[in-house]
Simulated assay, not measured.
Amino acid sequence: MSGANGGSDADSPPVVVKIGGAKAVDPAGAIGDVADLVADGRHVVVVHGGSTVVDETITRLGMEPEYVESASGVTGRFTDAETMEAFTMAMAGKLNTELTALFRSAGVDAVGLSGVDGGLLSGPRKSAVRVVENGKKKIRRGEHSGRIESVNADLLDGLLADGYTPVCSPPMAGEESDDTITPVNTDADRAAAAVAGALDAELVLLTDVAGVYADPDDPETVIDSAATPAGFESVKSAAEGFMGKKVMAAREALTEGAPRVIVADANVENPIVSALDGTGTTIERAAVVEDGASGADGENGADENAEAKAEVDG
């Protein structure tokens, strides 16, 4: 197989593939594509979510999944201690192991990792969140979540150099005030974005729709690409619900070093290769980072990233 966009895959930047955790996402096509890309010399890191299985595990344990709305209107899971136990069982225990086995069955020398392993994904634990309940702002304590501030890129680079394909998932390593580590929840799209930024990798966000729709109710209105700030604003304005988090993740990846991000359908034939070849919605780095500016220091990149954090952190 020749590399997407010409040349051999060995000469191309790494690819970070985020496989969605919704029940409607079939990973089979992505697994085959990763196997082909790796066989052709491309470095690939897989990051996966698992919201559906987490909810099923929570319910099986006799609890109710709880979602809360932040002060800025973003809906997310409230993860208390019991929920965090179920989350870790489902994500690191069940899903990561099963997905790693599927990759190995396809001939990929996959290594399963949670964000805690080797300090792969780390940042301060958030033990309280500001939420809106019945129109009133409240503080909910006992939360187990965090914002990724550090990626152990050396760990990933070492595995890739040795021929392994990392398969990564939350939880992340939550840093406590006494320097201990607590496994905590973090958004899988943003985890994939952090990894892509740390590796200067292309990011493919696979989901159950064909991309970002200009009209959220019309699949025929896929926005093909955004290569300018105006184009990115159009994408951001069109993104609703879960897609808004993916666009937020795309912005974070691009400002931290990813050359481009593609939001694409996981359920088409050869979903990753097709995305790299132009299907879905492609967001170029120039859409969020001014020419010649670094992601962390560029004025546009810094402002966008700060806004993204505020949207989630409330």
Rank of each mutant, 00 (worst) to 15 (best):
S114P: 07
L199C: 05
D157W: 11
S234P: 10
A161R: 12
E69N: 02
V289Y: 00
L206P: 03
R140W: 15
P170N: 09
S225T: 15
F242Y: 03
D224F: 07
E299V: 01
A35F: 04
G163N: 04
A198Q: 06
A198V: 13
V68S: 06
G280K: 00
K126S: 10
T52K: 02
S51K: 07
L206K: 05
V54A: 07
T57E: 07
V54P: 11
S122H: 15
M172N: 08
E98R: 13
V44P: 09
G314I: 02
I181L: 05
A30F: 06
G112E: 08
T97Q: 14
A39N: 07
S169V: 05
G32N: 15
V116A: 15
A239N: 08
V25S: 02
L99E: 04
E66P: 14
A81K: 15
P170V: 08
D200E: 14
A188R: 03
P219I: 00
E64C: 09
D26C: 05
V131G: 07
V25R: 05
P183W: 09
E290K: 08
V184R: 04
R260D: 01
L61S: 11
E149S: 15
E290L: 08
E66I: 15
E220R: 09
D36L: 14
T100E: 10
L156A: 01
